[in-house]
Simulated assay, not measured.
Amino acid sequence: MTNTALSRLLTPIYAAGLTAYVAGLPIAGLASEDIADQYPQSELYSKPVEVIPHVFSAIGATAPPTYENAGHNNNLSFIVTNEGVVVINAGASDALAAALHAEIKAVTDQPVVLVINENGQGHAVLGNGYWRDQGVDILGHADAIAETQKNGDFILQRMQAYNKDRAGDSRMEHANLSFDDRYDLSLGGVDIQVLHLGPAHDPGDVQVWIPAWKIMIAGDIAFHERMLPIFPHTCTSCWIETWVEKLEPMAPTYVIPGHGHPTNLDQVRRYTLDYLNDLRSKIGVHIEDGGDLASAYYVDQQQWRGLDTFDELATKNAGRVFEEMEWE
């Protein structure tokens, strides 16, 4: 039976299971930054799970990167076909990349043929060296490659600072393949689209879309169990525009976000698009009322307190949106 035929047979079963899984648990029951390492025999924070047939993800901690989670605080995913495996995210170190590779080998005899960096952040790219040493090509968006070329030493040093001996021999290795808007790949009868839908969380954010299976490995355009971070270079109005004009019309059934468990579009919309709109609305009122940056940090975000990393990010996000909006 081909991958496509098997998927058509099993996808309804997985859809029902995933829907029940998401609907049956409150957000706090799915993830917490206080949960200790779930897979202590591995460098990975958790063992990969099969989200739908042939698509697996090792779900990272929703906490910031630490020595205890070895920097595995994002999702490391892979797609299995009968002509090879595509990996999404190289991992935050060569040790994490090797651990993920061991899990792939336990699932399939097919070789890894491509690794995709979802952006230019350390947990997406610092395992590139391991994969290049295996002879695997690395694909990244042009803007993400520009980011690693500009700030690669700092990205590596920051990981080495928290990861200490667990950093191993990791090095900054840039993606050797690049694209601007879209990269199409057909492997084992599976059509995979690697997309840059537009500006969002970070330069060169990538979304991996499998139309036949209605699954999007969304990367950091989509958050739900942890608060999204807004960086000094993040354009929140652009993020909203990209979401509304590009992501929504695609209407994926399944979403693997950059962080947190697999879910659906409604859930990530609530904690990404709705959060951005809510924060921008409150900062807009604050600016209209003559408020300054110092008091902008304390606009009311209590409805989002249940998200992991709220304490680390809420006030920073408010300040950065103020700095963005005061010149709009």
Rank of each mutant, 00 (worst) to 15 (best):
A31W: 00
V194S: 00
Q193H: 14
G29H: 08
Q267W: 03
L139H: 06
R171A: 14
E173L: 05
F154P: 00
E50M: 11
E245N: 15
Q267E: 06
H141V: 12
N151W: 07
R166W: 08
K150L: 07
Q160Y: 09
N176F: 05
D169G: 12
E288S: 13
D220P: 00
Q157P: 07
F78W: 06
Q303F: 06
N151F: 08
I79T: 07
H123L: 05
S178L: 04
N75V: 04
V85M: 02
D94T: 03
A99I: 13
I230A: 01
Q149H: 12
D181P: 00
H123C: 10
E50P: 04
S7E: 13
M159N: 10
E328H: 12
E312D: 14
A90C: 06
W304E: 13
A99Y: 10
Y275W: 13
I256N: 00
V285K: 15
R269K: 14
A23P: 06
R305C: 12
G140P: 02
G120Q: 01
W304G: 11
N74M: 13
E328L: 09
H196P: 02
E173G: 02
A314I: 10
W304C: 14
V115S: 01
D34F: 08
D133N: 09
G258T: 01
E43L: 14
T253W: 03
V85Y: 01
Y275P: 03
W239E: 03
G258N: 02
G29E: 11
V244T: 13
M216Q: 09
N73K: 07
R320L: 15
L9D: 11
Q193F: 03
P249K: 11
L96Q: 01
G291C: 04
N74A: 13
A61M: 05
A16T: 12
I283Y: 01
N119M: 02
G29W: 10
Y21L: 08
F310H: 04
A23F: 10
A15D: 11
V86K: 03
V190G: 06
V206T: 13
W209F: 10
G120K: 01
N119W: 02
A98N: 11
V268C: 05
T309P: 00
Q267Y: 04
M250T: 07
N73Y: 09
I145K: 04
E173F: 11
A16G: 13
T2S: 15
D300M: 10
F231K: 07
G189N: 12
T236P: 05
L307G: 06
I145L: 08
I59K: 03
